[in-house]
């Protein structure tokens, strides 16, 4: 499943230049944070996969997930740092930032 995912993401990256800020490395999907926004608004992964959030911004971010089945809250992350979120369960989750409320990434975990 992970290999398929990597292939799919790499293929998408090759086709869509706008998706260049999203990359899969070793089964980890990477999402960049820039200009007080996530580089993409939607991401599909398999359960058990991790999304690595790179803070490529000039601002701190503090990302979180709130849902009935899964919750996560990071510390405040300085520019140049990363935060990993492991999505162990299937479902649709919204990743947001406490500091910048317009930041939203919807993660579809199958």
């Amino acid at each position: 499943m992970q290999i398929r995912k990597i292939s799919r993401v790499l293929a998408m990256t090759a086709v869509l230049p706008a998706a260049a800020a999203v990359a899969a490395v070793g089964g980890i999907v990477t999402v960049s944070q820039q200009n007080r926004a996530f580089a993409v608004s939607n991401e599909r992964i398999a359960h058990g996969q991790t999304i690595r959030f790179d803070n490529d911004d000039q601002f701190r971010h503090q990302i979180y997930v709130e849902s009935p089945s899964f919750n996560f809250e990071s510390d405040e992350a300085d520019p140049g740092t990363t935060v990993d979120i492991l999505f162990a369960k299937a479902g649709v989750f919204q990743v947001r930032c406490h500091i910048h409320p317009k930041m939203l990434l919807t993660v579809d975990v199958n």
Partner: peptide
């Protein structure tokens, strides 16, 4: 201040 959480 458009994309800043006022409480934070």
């Amino acid at each position: 201040f458009g994309n800043i959480n006022p409480d934070h």
